[in-house]
């Protein structure tokens, strides 16, 4: 594995690329879904949800203040007790999900709060339920505020998934290290890894920008 264009090397890098992309897309998507639930929970006013609101606050504030590497280790040791058979890539994706959920919750909260409170008050006075207000009034207006930072977060996290190499997940950065250890020139090995990170981040960034422009027109 010293020739960058050798079929075995390309296959090895392709698999590593897919792992990086998979961790990012699955982790950030699941994190977005959980973040949305957390943000809505934190906005709720029902008295019986007070303990859940408190837990959501703890979750968001906690995971945003812990370095991603520490979250990886916490998940690794936590999962070993609960689900010992889970593969390392699964553990890393779960860690991405936890970290992303906390950041996404804050991004979504900011988006929801950007909708003038007067509109929510108008809707409440008409007797509309909290669910209808969220679906038909809040989220359609909040998206344009939520999408740009959420997409930027995901593009940034493509790079942070390199930390999963500490668990032994052969993602892009670790693949580069392995290739160099086996004799490939560091300039060629890490140069290829650098280009692949760019090739991942660039289209994601462009897609996010296109979505942002489309939302701004609505």
């Amino acid at each position: 594995m010293t020739e960058i264009f050798a079929p075995a090397t390309l296959a090895f890098l392709g698999e590593a690329l897919l792992r990086t992309l998979g961790m990012t897309l699955i982790g950030c998507s699941a994190g977005f879904a959980i973040g949305l639930a957390l943000a809505l929970l934190r906005r709720s006013r029902a008295g019986w949800l007070a303990p859940a609101r408190w837990l959501a606050m703890l979750w968001v504030e906690g995971f945003r203040r812990i370095p991603f590497l520490v979250i990886l280790m916490l998940v690794l040791f936590g999962v070993q007790g609960l689900a010992p058979g889970l593969p390392l890539i699964g553990i890393a994706t779960l860690a991405v999900t936890l970290a992303a959920s906390a950041y996404m919750a804050e991004i979504i909260r900011g988006g929801l709060e950007s909708v003038p409170a007067a509109q929510v008050e108008g809707a409440e006075a008409l007797g509309l339920s909290a669910g209808t207000i969220t679906r038909t009034i809040l989220l359609p207006q909040a998206w344009r505020v939520i999408v740009p930072p959420a997409a930027a977060f995901m593009v940034m996290f493509v790079k942070d998934t390199a930390l999963a190499s500490h668990l032994g997940v052969v993602e892009l950065a670790f693949a580069g290290k392995i290739m160099v250890n086996r004799g490939m020139s560091p300039v060629v090995g890490f140069g290829a890894v650098m280009l692949l990170y760019f090739a991942l981040s660039w289209p994601l960034g462009r897609a996010a920008r296109a979505l942002e422009v489309r939302l701004a027109r609505t």
Binding site: P116, A118, Q119, E121, G122, A123, A125, L126, G127, L128, T132, T136, I137, P140, Q141
Partner: peptide, 15 residues
Amino acid sequence: NLFQNMDVLANICLA
């Protein structure tokens, strides 16, 4: 306090 993401008709018909 009109809903800015909807047209007039949708504002009126929602509730």
